[in-house]
């Protein structure tokens, strides 16, 4: 088992919280993990990504080789496209439809969705709407994680366990809400 995942978004959108859940779930499942993050200047509203690699055998490179990424999981549609050179032929793009427009020449939504639809394996999901229905915009990232979970090769129980560990000190309610978001994301793409 080996999964190479690129997490994409804009600095401040919290992709590292998705990475933390996947990472912890992977380690708890007894898998090897490498996860390269972006810290520093780009975190100020710039494009950010994280290379997340999980495998049942030791992992050499902290970076995913070009053309071999199993999934791009993005919380922003334009950012989903930025890392396409890394995507394997049969790789998946799972992205939120919610745009983050902090640059003047941000493209038209339709153009972005058109490009995403050109990728054979893609999931476009309105994670913010689902999160809103559940009562909090803050959990849209966990909706995205849910939408991507079937491609992770990790048991849902491990993802839930990781949420328990990571969000536990914020209280049971927060954990329950995050797990609800995970499930909703998982269900959301079946529709």
């Amino acid at each position: 088992m080996k999964k190479d995942i690129i997490l994409a978004g804009v600095g401040g959108q919290g992709i590292l919280s998705i990475a933390a859940v996947i990472g912890m779930a992977a380690v708890e499942s007894g898998l090897y993990l490498k996860q390269a993050e972006v810290h520093g200047m780009s975190q100020r509203g710039g494009a950010v990504q994280s290379h997340l690699r999980i495998s049942d055998s030791p992992i050499a490179s902290d970076l995913i080789p070009e053309g071999s990424c199993d999934m791009i999981l993005s919380v922003e549609p334009m950012e989903a496209l930025r890392y396409l050179p890394f995507l394997a032929k049969d790789g998946w793009v799972v992205t939120s439809t919610k745009t983050f427009e902090n640059i003047e020449d941000y493209p038209a939504e339709d153009e972005l969705f058109e490009q995403i639809r050109l990728i054979e394996n893609h999931v476009l999901i309105d994670a913010n709407a689902i999160a809103r229905e559940l009562g909090s915009q803050k959990i849209s990232n966990m909706v995205m994680l849910g939408a991507a979970s079937m491609h992770l090769g990790l048991g849902t129980e491990y993802l839930e366990g990781a949420m328990n560990t990571l969000f536990g000190r914020k209280g049971e309610e927060v954990v329950a809400l995050n797990i609800k978001a995970l499930m909703a994301g998982k269900e959301g793409i079946r529709i």
């Binding site: 070009e66 053309g67 334009m78 396409l84 050179p85 020449d105 153009e111 972005l112 490009q115």
Partner: peptide, 18 residues
């Protein structure tokens, strides 16, 4: 093998003051 290309619709997103 040639990798996929980044579509032209993708614009640079440099860091910015909050």
């Amino acid at each position: 093998e040639p990798a996929r290309l980044i579509p032209d619709v993708v614009k640079n997103r440099p860091p910015a003051l909050c």
